[in-house]
């Protein structure tokens, strides 16, 4: 293969005086210039806009991600806070309930004591009245007995 190309190239060069594989001429500098122009054009048309799009997207994603991260942590802290508050209020409610129960019990006991005392007082009063009436009755009975016995005595003495 190499032989062919070299032979052919040599032959072509020998035949026409010019041409061949290693024919270096003004194509070289013009190609270089053309390539540099292509670099400049592609820089404007391709690398800058597409690179900008990629970078913009990167920053967009990065900021969004940071934002989301921040929001997530905020939400987590909020949730923690709420949980704490919930626990606090539950404890408070329990304390309140306990307090109310204790109060109620105290009031009930107090009322009960009061009622018992009143009942006692009433009973005592009734007892006293009863006693008095009994005594009065006894007294009147005694008087009657006295009177009767005197009448009996009178009758006896008269007779």
């Amino acid at each position: 293969m190499m032989h062919w190309t070299i032979l052919l190239a040599a032959e072509a060069a020998a035949e026409g005086g010019k041409g061949g594989l290693f024919d270096i001429d003004a194509t070289l500098p013009l190609m270089a210039v053309q390539f540099l122009i292509l670099v400049a054009l592609l820089n404007i048309l391709f690398y800058k806009p597409i690179g900008k799009a990629i970078d913009d997207r990167d920053t967009y994603i990065r900021t969004n991600q940071a934002d989301a991260q921040e929001r997530l942590s905020k939400a987590e802290s909020l949730a923690k806070q709420y949980e704490q508050e919930l626990m606090d209020s539950r404890r408070q409610a329990q304390a309140l309930i306990a307090e109310a129960e204790a109060d109620a019990q105290k009031i009930a006991a107090q009322k009960l004591a009061e009622a018992q005392q009143e009942a006692q007082v009433q009973r005592e009063q009734v007892q006293r009245e009863l006693d008095q009436q009994k005594q009065e009755a006894m007294q009147s009975l005694e008087q009657q007995v006295d009177a009767l016995s005197r009448q009996i005595l009178d009758k006896l003495l008269v007779a």
Binding site: D25, T27, L38, L42, L45, F46, P49, I50
Partner: peptide, 29 residues
Amino acid sequence: LELHGQVFLVSWFVIAVLLIASILATRNI
């Protein structure tokens, strides 16, 4: 000056392909 016409013709084709692709890609980013 002597230039290799066939090289330039195809290189222009290549350049055109690249430019058209770039324009198509960046027309509506």
